[in-house]
């Protein structure tokens, strides 16, 4: 009996349960409101929850598709030293890298492409939070440098979408050095007279915020995105106080003067295109008379200003 129970019944129960948990990934649970969202609806809604407007985290592939006209091309990123410190914590860093590559099908945490945004040539770099928390090590630094060089070669604006927990600890001080390194990349773009626009997406913290993310000519974010330098836990432990409601969310940063706008994902492409055309001295693609716009005199917080 015991054999029949353990060998046959239990696996069967498990299999049934497992199937119920993820019915072929057709449904996604909104991390904010907990409602189930059908995958096709989610994709059609740009991965924004139709129930609570929560902006889900998405990767480079989705971003490129959402922000660029069809036909973008990858900007090659030179290979970097893998695991320069031979780092090992509870796992080998090389194993963590392998897992992240298998999971995301990407080389590291930032992907760069050349493409057109409403016909305007741009270089777009997108950080991938699914790849080791988007963390910045040699590879992310190299990707940003490559993106800067591509922008200069094309005389195109550089748009970066950030998403990272911070620096990649497994690369030690070399990851810290990516802060000045990416700063130099940004300086090159700016000195070439090209716009550097940053979209800080959920979450952008640590050394990434404290380097290239905060050096944009224009700072945009999505509603509810977590943006900060120190982690909430570290701050709470330091000051022994509860943090205020909405602390380090995009709307909080907007109120404190760190962002130009908080833009709903559905308006992101149009907003970026408009800003870049204005900065690059190009004619408007979709001319809008300010007189017709109802909210033209307001700093643009579009969509419901939602704090998690």
């Amino acid at each position: 009996m015991a054999n029949w129970l353990t060998d046959f019944v239990r696996p069967k129960i498990r299999a049934v349960l497992r199937r119920r948990e993820t019915p072929d990934n057709l449904w996604t649970k909104c991390p904010a409101c907990g409602q189930m969202i059908f995958h096709r609806e989610l994709a059609a809604n740009l991965f924004v929850c139709q129930h609570c407007s929560h902006h889900l985290r998405i990767g480079p592939t989705e971003r490129f598709a959402q922000l660029l006209d069809p036909g973008w091309v990858a900007v090659p990123v030179p290979a970097v030293a893998l695991d320069p410190l031979k780092f090992r914590d509870e796992k080998r860093y090389t194993d963590r890298l392998k897992e992240a590559k298998a999971k995301t099908h990407q080389e590291d945490a930032m992907a760069v492409v050349r493409g057109r945004m409403d016909e305007l040539p741009v270089v777009l770099a997108v950080q991938n939070f699914s790849f080791m928390g988007g963390s910045m090590g040699l590879a992310v630094g190299e990707a940003l440098v490559a993106a800067a060089r591509a922008a200069m070669a094309e005389r195109a604006p550089l748009v970066v979408l950030t998403a990272a927990g911070g620096a990649r600890m497994q690369e030690g001080t070399l990851s810290l050095m990516q802060m000045p390194r990416t700063t130099v990349a940004v300086q090159m773009v700016k000195e070439a007279g090209l716009p550097f626009v940053v979209v800080m997406t959920d979450p952008t913290t640590g050394g990434v915020t404290a380097s290239f993310a905060m050096l944009g000519d224009v700072h945009i974010s999505e509603p509810g995105a977590l943006i900060g330098f120190a982690g909430a836990r570290v701050i709470e432990q330091t000051i022994r106080e509860r943090l205020p409601e909405g602390f380090q969310r995009a709307e909080y940063l907007f109120d404190h003067g760190m962002l130009d706008m908080v833009v709903h994902r559905k308006d992101l492409k149009e907003t970026l295109g408009r800003v870049l055309r204005l900065l690059m001295g190009r004619d408007a693609r979709h001319p809008v008379s300010s007189r017709d716009a109802e909210d033209f005199d307001l700093p643009a917080i579009s969509g419901p200003a939602k704090a998690k």
């Binding site: 000045p180 940004v186 404290a210 993310a213 905060m214 330098f229 570290v234 701050i235 106080e241």
Partner: peptide, 20 residues
Amino acid sequence: YPGIGAEERGQAEAIARSTE
């Protein structure tokens, strides 16, 4: 310093500008 006031006043931006 990791604190509320520091974040409020843009700790990350201040560090980035100093490096720059």
